[in-house]
Simulated scan of single mutants.
Amino acid sequence: MERSSKSFVAALLLCIFFGGLGIHRFYAGKIGTGILQLLTLGGLGIWALIDLILIIVSKFTDSEGRRITP
């Protein structure tokens, strides 16, 4: 699988500090789901927690389906 040009550390930090607002999804280019996370406060935290785990295990992808890896 192809590697994203997005920074792993940036995505991780954005998710840790602003996960409830979906800022990490905006960073990854996933605008639609970023807006949904913003409106639902990260799916009441659950969605943001799942995204955090996906980022840590390098399974989170950008808008083009490329993995954001360290």
Rank of each mutant, 00 (worst) to 15 (best):
residue 1 M to H: 05
residue 1 M to Y: 09
residue 2 E to H: 03
residue 2 E to Y: 02
residue 2 E to C: 01
residue 3 R to A: 13
residue 4 S to H: 04
residue 5 S to I: 10
residue 5 S to A: 10
residue 5 S to C: 06
residue 5 S to Y: 07
residue 6 K to M: 12
residue 7 S to C: 03
residue 8 F to W: 15
residue 8 F to K: 11
residue 8 F to H: 13
residue 10 A to G: 01
residue 10 A to C: 08
residue 10 A to S: 11
residue 10 A to P: 02
residue 11 A to Q: 03
residue 12 L to M: 12
residue 12 L to Q: 07
residue 12 L to K: 04
residue 13 L to C: 08
residue 14 L to Q: 05
residue 14 L to P: 02
residue 14 L to N: 05
residue 15 C to V: 00
residue 15 C to W: 01
residue 16 I to Y: 12
residue 17 F to P: 05
residue 18 F to P: 02
residue 18 F to K: 06
residue 18 F to R: 04
residue 19 G to H: 04
residue 19 G to V: 12
residue 19 G to C: 07
residue 20 G to S: 12
residue 21 L to H: 02
residue 22 G to P: 06
residue 22 G to C: 07
residue 23 I to N: 08
residue 25 R to K: 15
residue 26 F to D: 04
residue 26 F to K: 06
residue 27 Y to I: 10
residue 27 Y to V: 05
residue 27 Y to A: 11
residue 28 A to D: 15
residue 28 A to V: 06
residue 31 I to H: 04
residue 31 I to V: 15
residue 32 G to Y: 01
residue 33 T to W: 09
residue 33 T to I: 13
residue 33 T to A: 11
residue 33 T to F: 02
residue 33 T to M: 12
residue 33 T to P: 00
residue 33 T to S: 14
residue 33 T to N: 12
residue 33 T to C: 06
residue 35 I to R: 08
residue 36 L to F: 12
residue 36 L to V: 15
residue 37 Q to T: 11
residue 38 L to S: 12
residue 38 L to R: 07
residue 39 L to H: 08
residue 41 L to M: 12
residue 41 L to S: 14
residue 41 L to G: 04
residue 42 G to T: 07
residue 43 G to M: 09
residue 44 L to P: 10
residue 44 L to K: 07
residue 45 G to C: 01
residue 45 G to P: 00
residue 47 W to R: 05
residue 47 W to V: 07
residue 47 W to I: 04
residue 48 A to V: 01
residue 48 A to M: 03
residue 49 L to E: 05
residue 49 L to F: 13
residue 49 L to D: 08
residue 49 L to G: 09
residue 49 L to Q: 04
residue 50 I to G: 02
residue 50 I to M: 08
residue 50 I to W: 03
residue 51 D to W: 06
residue 52 L to K: 02
residue 53 I to N: 06
residue 53 I to A: 14
residue 54 L to I: 02
residue 55 I to F: 00
residue 56 I to F: 02
residue 57 V to E: 10
residue 58 S to Q: 14
residue 58 S to H: 13
residue 60 F to R: 04
residue 60 F to Q: 13
residue 60 F to W: 13
residue 60 F to V: 10
residue 61 T to C: 10
residue 61 T to V: 14
residue 61 T to Q: 15
residue 62 D to I: 08
residue 62 D to Y: 00
residue 62 D to Q: 08
residue 63 S to P: 03
residue 63 S to N: 15
residue 63 S to E: 15
residue 64 E to D: 14
residue 64 E to W: 05
residue 65 G to I: 06
residue 65 G to W: 01
residue 65 G to E: 03
residue 66 R to W: 01
residue 66 R to G: 03
residue 67 R to G: 06
residue 69 T to Q: 12
residue 70 P to W: 14
